[in-house]
Structure formats: C-alpha cells, structure tokens
Design a protein around this nucleic acid. Structure first.
Lengths: 335, 335
DNA sequence: GGCTCGTGTGAAAGCGGTTTCAGAAGTGAT
DNA sequence: ATCACTTCTGAAACCGCTTTCACACGAGCC
C-alpha cells in the first residue's frame, strides 16, 4: 500500500478528486451515496474512478467511519470438520451485510485464545467466539470490555451475553430414549474432553435417562476416531449392550474396532454416534446418530452478531435442537 | 469502536500518553520498540496501558504504517474438506509472522470471485488465491494491479506470478503406473469439473499412460460421492478393469454403488481414489489413492506469500509431489 | 428587486496511530 | 568553561477517508 520500491503508488481519493475536478468530499459522497450530487459531477467522478482504477483504502475508511466492516471468528480448530460449515454460513451472512470475515484458530489452546480474542477486538466490529475453552473468569473479563461478542457452543451461567448453542442435552436425551425404547438397560458413554461444556451437556442427559430405565456409565475416551478405536476393547467384558459416543468420529473408530474383533453391530452391541461431524454422506457407514444443524447454527450466529452490531441484542441463550437419525447401528439388546 | 450509545468510549494513545505524562510519540515508541526510551518512562507507559486497558486501533496502525498486518485467502468452497487443512497451515504461518488471516469464499462462482479479490486487495497486504475459477483474462487483469498475490492450484502459462500447486499430473501418472504394473490395460476415469485446471492436469497424465500400455477413457462425472455413485453403473457393461476417479469422494461413492450391486473390489474392478479429501482416517475404507500434502501445501503457500511481502519472490511455479498409497481397492485385473 | 430558504459543494477538522524533525539534555574532549 | 556530539523526547505532519460546517448559488416569495 505504501510506495514500496518497485510498486506502483497507491491511488487515493485525492487523485480521483483532482482528475474529476471536484473535491475529495464529493468523491466520497458519490461513492457512498451519502448525499445528493449533481449528475454531471457524478459521471465525472465515476469516469475518474474507472480510469484510475481507484479502490478506497479499507483502513482509512475504517478509521474515519469508526467501523471496520469486519467480523471476527475464533475457532478452536480449523481442521475440525465441524467448523467449515459454520464458517461458511457465518461468512455468507456477514457478506450479505457488507462485512468481511476474519478467522483465527486457537489450536485448542485456552492460553492463546485470550490473546487472539483481544487481537480480533482490535480489528473487528464484532467477534464470534466458538466453543471457547478459556476459564470462566477470563471470559468474563473479555466480555466486560463491552465489545460486541457472541458466544457459540458455550453457555456461561450468570454472564449475560448473546449466545447460541446446540441442545446437546436434548440430543443425548433423544439417544437415550431411543435406546431405552429398544430395551437397553445398561450402556457406556465414550466421553469426550472432560473440560468441555459440550461434553458436560451430553453427560447431564444421563441423569434424566435413569427415568427411562437406562443406566449409562461414563468412560474417558477422547474426541477422535483413534480414541474410539482404542477405548472399545475394554467394554467388551462389561455387561453393557449399547455404546454411546461423544461424536461420530469416536463412533466410527469404535465400529471399526468392533468389526475387527468380529463383534456384530447392532446384534451384539448398539453403537450410536453424535453428529458433531457428519460423515455419512461419504462414509456410508449408516451410523445411528443425532445431527447438528450446522448451517443453521452458523447462519443464526451470524445474524445474532449482526443484530447486536446494529440494534443491540438482548435475548436468552438460544439452543438449536438436534435431530435423531435411526439407521443401522442400533437395535434391540442381545439376550 | 466509535462512541456508540451505551458503549464505553475507546481508549486512544492520547489517553495513555496523558495518563503517563508523556507524548503519544513516546507511547508509540515504547509499544513498538522502535526507539530507545528511558526506562522510567517505559514503566510509566506500561502502567498506563495496563491501567486503562489500552489496545492500539488496528485500522489506525494500518493506515499510518501502510500495512494491514493481514493476509487474505480466497477459497472456492469453505465446506470442501480440502481447504480447512490448508487454511490451518496458512493461518499458522501468517500468525508466526504477525499477520492475521482474512477468509473469503466464492461459492465456486467465478463472477463473484473477481469482486472478492478486489475487496481483499483493499484490506490485506497480500492475497492467496486458491483454485481460482475465473477466466484467464480477468486473472491477468487482477495480477496487473501489482498487488502481492500468490496463486494456489492454478498455473497460468505466460503469467509470471508466484504459484504453488500439487503435481496432479505426476500423481495421476503414478496411479496409471501402478495399475499398468498390475496388468490393467483398459480403465475409465470418472472426470471432475471439466473447466477445472486440476481436472485437466489429471487427464493430461493419460497420454503418458499409453506408454505403459494403459488406455483410459474419460467419463463425465462430477466431484461428489453422489456423482461417483451415479456414474459407476454405466461402466459395468464396458470392458474396463479399473476405475480412476477425480477424487476420493467420487471413489467412495463408486465403491458404495459397486458394493450394492454385488460387484467385488478389487477382484472384478480396481478402484483408485485421488486424495483431494483424505477420509481414510475416518472412513476406514482402505482405498488405494494418492495423497496431497495439504498441510505442507498450506505452509509453503503462506511462506511464499510472506516472502513476497518482505523481499519479493521470484521463482518458478512450485509443484508439490503426491504420494501413492496402495491399499485394498486395487489389484490385478479380472481374467 | 430584495430576502429567505433550500441545495449542492468545498475547506477543513477529525479518526488514531507512526514517523520525521528539531530541540533539549547530557556527555566527553579541549 | 566552552564546544561538538549523542541521545532521548515532544510537536507536528502525515496516512486516506468521512463528515461537519460554512458558504455560494438559484429559486420562490412578498
């Protein structure tokens, strides 16, 4: 942008204004349509703009307008198949409102998360914080900055902040209901990251499941297919008849291991995924699972943020429902 | 950022300077370490910064420095599993050099692509253009803007622009060699989008494959697993013994259909993927395929862009090699 | 024909930083 | 004690755009 050596000098609004024989103010008015301008001048400005190939400098605009025209999104892991769909929707909403999308990734590290958010606040009108890992106190501190911010997949009791989440609790409740109805009485849950709110929400559903007559014991596992693969062996000595999982990846890993061990599904064990990461369209695994409306989630999140920027937004945390998909990996318990 | 109603006023460098009893210039010097400042002043500045919670305004810095501290990435489709890994690597490199990453998505639409690039050029130091779909002339026009830009997965003969791609031609050549060596003589290729450079590169390999004694006929198909599923039926009447694909998704779709039809793989047909979208870790499909080094690709792309921004970069298009992974879906041809 | 009023335009003051430039101290040599 | 030279600091210009404010001009009215 600066006249770096060998680079053509930037064309500014002043170049345009002299070329068109008008003041910079008029150029600005024409380009932004903020005031009526004589049509002959309008033409001259447009001609000059075209001839010079002028593009307004976004930083200068941001500075003068007090708005960046940008929203920031922080995700824990870009490579997590969960987020692209969300980002896609958020980006699309943002663009519909004339804003760009800045993306940062914390690499699941709560420590860097804080810095990244601060950085985003320096260059974005609003921030969408996806599944933040940081401790509640830090989060509260960031929220106190009065910078527009929306929380995604984390609800912090006591903090009033716009937030949108998936009703993981409801989703897991559906899973439990489905299994209970099939006749299962004892199940195991291959648990995800223990610090995670999303995991806690799933586990919370098991209390209610007792009412269905289903007892679920929680087993430390992890979030990837390898974790599922590794965890499943230990279960086979127990008397559980169904395996619940933190997400589809874990379930696929578990299925793969069961398959290797010659254990048939769902005859001997039912396996149910949790659709953080829908892969059925490619994996053709026909996994029974519950699905997250990822695009709607992203869209709504984007809209809430936009509304927050324009009018202010003040509503209770929004929970989007999950949908149960019964396919081939769940069935009645073995005798 | 502006004093919007109900929002706390922004803290500027002037607030800090008065609080610390120094000039704004000194605050700037302390914060950027651009000049030596008396240590007592340094402390006072830091205290004031901390007490006030000051954060420099990125737009103002960008304007004054003539650099945004941001790179832009344009991808055709965020939800395409190809890109998250790339974005992840690019973002990581960018951050290592103190830059943020702005992401835009063209939704595979060449028309909007042009506008988005222009927008990116207005707010980013450099732009990484992933698999641009736009016609050559438009691309040339954008490149003539002398704005730092790197091309990803598209090589435009005659245009000198830093670019990095995957050696699709070499990858497909490996596939052909592998099949020829197994004894295959006739194969079909389920072709991807016909306008795509990446697809053309794959097809180009089939000429060389004749030298191995392998004849490949190209069949219009598409890029998704559904396309593969749909396309495979028509092949079974032909005398081909191997099915090559545009990508793994197509291959998985084809496998799924073959499985339904009771056709055994690789006994009756060999199926080979093309690893745009590695899913083996989750799908456990054991597909023979060639892999793209996505993270290295992203990393190198980021580094090239960075180098371009700092020193200028002038090198021939870089092609990263693919690697053949022989697994369970390829074998000798049926008799 | 003079006066008010409404309209379109330009000059200039920001927006919040960085950087140049010149001046004030402080240092060492003569 | 004076002078030349560094070093550090602050004032002010500047980055490129928006927006306020004041002014000039023409229309409409009495």
């Amino acid at each position: 942008m600066q006249n770096r050596p060998g680079r053509s000098p930037r064309i500014t609004i002043n170049d345009v204004s002299t070329a068109a024989g008008v003041s910079p103010a008029t150029v600005s008015r024409v380009l932004n349509g903020t005031a009526k301008v004589d049509s002959s001048l309008v033409d001259r400005v447009h001609d000059a703009v075209r001839k010079l190939g002028y593009r307004p400098n976004a930083a200068a605009q941001g500075l003068a307008r007090g708005e960046w025209g940008t929203i920031g999104v922080l995700v824990p892991d870009l490579a997590n198949p969960y987020f692209p769909d969300v980002l896609k929707a958020v980006s699309s909403v943002a663009r519909a409102h004339g804003r760009r999308m800045m993306v940062m990734e914390s690499d699941e590290d709560p420590a860097v998360e804080h810095d990244l958010v601060e950085d985003l606040m320096r260059c974005c009108d609003g921030v969408l914080l996806c599944s933040p890992r940081m401790p509640r106190a830090e989060l509260a501190e960031l929220l106190s900055r009065e910078h527009p911010m929306v929380l995604f997949n984390r609800v912090v009791p006591g903090l009033t902040v716009p937030s949108i989440s998936v009703d993981f609790h409801g989703g897991m409740t559906q899973v439990c209901g489905h299994l209970a109805q099939l006749g299962h009485r004892r199940a195991a849950y291959l648990s995800g990251p223990s610090a995670s709110w999303a995991n806690a929400e799933r586990i919370r559903a098991f209390e209610g499941a007792r009412a269905f007559g289903l007892e679920v014991n929680v087993i430390e596992c992890g979030a990837g297919s390898q974790a599922g693969y590794d965890a499943v062996g230990a279960l086979l000595e127990s008397e559980v008849t169904a395996i619940l999982t933190y997400n589809d990846l874990v379930a696929l890993g578990a299925l793969s291991r069961l398959n290797e061990l010659g254990v048939s599904v769902p005859a001997q064990y039912s396996v149910v995924g949790f659709d953080d990461i829908s892969l059925d369209r490619v994996a053709h695994s026909n996994l029974t699972t519950v699905s997250v409306p990822r695009d709607e989630l992203g869209r709504r999140a984007g809209e809430i943020l936009e509304q927050l920027l324009v009018n202010g937004y003040d509503a209770d945390p929004l929970y989007l429902p999950m949908a149960l998909h019964v396919r081939d990996t769940s069935g009645p318990p073995r005798r």
